[in-house]
Design a protein around this nucleic acid. Structure first.
Lengths: 164, 164
DNA sequence: GGTATAATGAAAATGAATTTCATTTTCATT
DNA sequence: AATGAAAATGAAATTCATTTTCATTATACC
């Protein structure tokens, strides 16, 4: 099931799409891999979504554009995208590996409703500051962080109140 | 592999062990389940560790105390412990389900070394405050959060410097 | 102590993640 | 444009953690 998502982001512009493609293909070049149509289709599909996708969910979307692309290729491409920083894994409570794209996005965090799995993004510069401070304190070279808040959203709260 | 862990906590006192057992057995009573030797052994083993354990890792530790306890029982007991709040799942980058015990522990967060998987705990009241604020802002009834910082620890940094 | 109910644990099932391998495609070099 | 080495692809198989099934055993209420 695709996750419901509540945020205020626009889809990527043609410009930023091109920029992401360039990043990807430079990465491929660097590690001696080849540019293929499949990889291009998968990257474009991924950037067009605004969700936290499992490999299988992305596969289904990709298949709409090109029914001949296999699951395995999506799986491997997603790993490549993560390698070059265009995608990153987000741990969700359902335990399945989920990715979101990191291109042209402000550093953000998630609130997840434990009832309906809706996720809301929020932005908190304080958290970024904390990452830095804590890293210094423990002599870690901090590179990234995860921050998710779990709770029950307004809709689900209303629903369960009605159910009583 | 058991994770290396760096923190400043003492093992649980006899007192707090008894208290946790009481919480557990009251929970069993409440949901109509029975008190068994296996469950007791598993709870004690779990509380004695200071690590983030996968089901399999806990199973191996439990087996040292009672070789007849099966994996399935450990698996199910861990779920029960999570239900009553004595254990909680911690998402780690290796993707395996890991639990840590929550008994008599200050609300804490983790720094994880992406090289050696060592984890360091840290405590940040600011993060708890943030949970509350963000929840209010987005009309979420916030109940808990995850916060992990990833980076490279001092040891690994030294090692990789030597390797050059 | 007897009996109903739940627990146990071995084995099987499930399902996501990963690997294998035969075939096809890419791309640098003719 | 043709060649060929290297890599990509994708279907199928495998791996492996997790979860369920089910026959047997243990618990606890009477």
């Amino acid at each position: 099931m695709l996750q419901r998502r509540i945020d205020d982001h626009a889809p990527p512009s043609r410009e930023s799409m091109r920029e992401a493609q360039e990043i990807f293909f430079k990465h491929l070049k660097r590690v001696g891999l080849k540019h293929t149509d499949q990889r291009d289709t998968i990257l474009r599909t991924f950037l067009e979504t605004r969700d936290h996708l499992s490999t299988d969910e992305l596969f289904r979307l990709v298949r709409k554009k090109d029914a001949k692309i296999g699951f395995t290729t999506v799986y491997r491409t997603l790993k490549l995208l993560a390698e070059c920083g265009l995608a990153s894994a987000v741990p969700f409570p359902d335990g399945m590996a989920r990715y979101e794209h990191q291109f042209n996005r402000r550093n953000h965090h998630h609130m997840v409703c434990t009832e309906c799995d809706a996720s809301v993004e929020f932005f908190s510069p304080e958290v970024n500051k904390l990452e830095e401070e804590i890293g210094r304190k423990y002599h870690f070279d901090a590179t990234r962080h995860n921050f998710q808040i779990y709770g029950v959203c307004e809709d689900c709260r209303k629903k369960s109140r009605r159910a009583i």
